[in-house]
């Protein structure tokens, strides 16, 4: 059994979680110190398969000196955060942009889509 002390990032409460688990076995996970269900889910995911939302920008080709903000939906595995961020440098869109527009589907095989998060007229 392994033990990890984590700070829950499910909300700004920042509960301190103690997670007991066997490597790779989701059923073995016991989370204590959480004050809600989010904490249990976060604690479990964090030791079995941690995930993050990547936010960043991509170039807008027809607006000089402008980038538009994007995010991955749903969250991607934590070890893909850096590769996906680097991939954003290779992407571009054209204005106008709308919140929710898809820039890339299944970015780098993560199963997540890259969506626009800003309206640029």
């Amino acid at each position: 059994m392994a033990e990890k002390i984590l700070t829950c990032i499910g909300c700004p409460m920042g509960c301190e979680l103690t997670v007991n688990y066997t490597e790779g076995d989701a059923d073995s996970v016991v989370v204590t110190g959480n004050t809600c269900e989010k904490g249990r889910i976060y604690g479990t995911n964090e030791v079995i398969s941690p995930k993050r939302t990547v936010t960043g920008t991509v170039n807008v080709v027809n607006r000089e000196g402008t980038v538009v903000s994007v995010k991955t939906v749903p969250e991607i595995p934590k070890d893909m955060v850096i590769p996906v961020s680097e991939e954003l440098n290779n992407l571009y869109v054209e204005a106008p942009t709308h919140i929710g527009d898809v820039v890339v589907r299944d970015i780098l095989g993560t199963g997540s889509d890259l969506l626009i998060t800003k309206n640029i007229i």
Binding site: S69, K71, T117, K118, N119
Partner: peptide
């Protein structure tokens, strides 16, 4: 508009939005 990270709106909209989405 420049806070493009997420984490906004958990209380107001019960979902996690980026800054520009929250503003919109």
């Amino acid at each position: 508009n420049q806070c493009i990270h997420n984490g906004f709106g958990l209380h107001t909209f019960k979902e996690e939005l980026t800054g520009p989405e929250y503003a919109s």
